[in-house]
């Protein structure tokens, strides 16, 4: 057994350098991180899911941007081809392995959570922190507010 936490930042830096990029990527970094304790019991809370996968639709495949898609029926496939997951080792054919709608639906039936929003949200991964901070994140916040979300779970691939 050879277990260790994969040093993703170092590996990614070296991978880009090997492709001839001279400027290293600057990851987002915050000294102060916001935090709120849960304001109501989970069994009464409305949960939203945010994924970095895009809808498997013509617009979703053509343009990576913020989308809101129905949580029911649960999509049987999502568009993940443009994301940097570990393609030689696994696959994304089981949507529940990265988009936890099915299991949250079960949690609703078990009364562990209040309910799941009727839409889930897609947010594009970005090299540009400015795009994320100034454009995409405010759109996601507006969707959460429209849907009266209590808890947002971000599940990046």
């Amino acid at each position: 057994m050879d277990q260790y936490d994969v040093p993703y930042m170092e590996r990614t830096r070296n991978f880009y350098r090997a492709q001839g990029y001279s400027k290293d990527y600057q990851w987002a970094h915050y000294d102060d991180v916001p935090f709120t304790v849960l304001q109501k019991p989970l069994s009464k809370a409305r949960i939203a899911v945010i994924t970095t996968a895009m809808p498997d639709t013509e617009p979703g495949r053509a343009q990576r941007q913020v989308y809101a898609s129905p949580s029911d029926p649960i999509p049987s496939v999502m568009y993940t081809d443009e994301l940097s997951w570990h393609k030689t080792m696994t696959h994304t054919e089981d949507v529940a392995s990265f988009l936890p709608l099915q299991q949250l639906r079960q949690c609703t039936q078990l009364n562990l959570i209040g309910d799941l929003t009727q839409r889930f949200y897609s947010i594009p991964t970005e090299y540009s922190q400015r795009n994320t901070i100034e454009k995409d994140a405010p759109e996601i916040l507006a969707l959460c507010q429209q849907d009266e979300v209590d808890v947002a779970i971000l599940v990046p691939l």
């Binding site: 997951w85 080792m89 696994t90 054919e93 990265f98």
Partner: peptide, 15 residues
């Protein structure tokens, strides 16, 4: 491996 943060594919108990 990146790609299945919610559990192994088709392992609904783990998920």
């Amino acid at each position: 491996p990146l790609g299945n943060p919610c559990g192994k594919p088709y392992d609904s108990d783990m998920q």
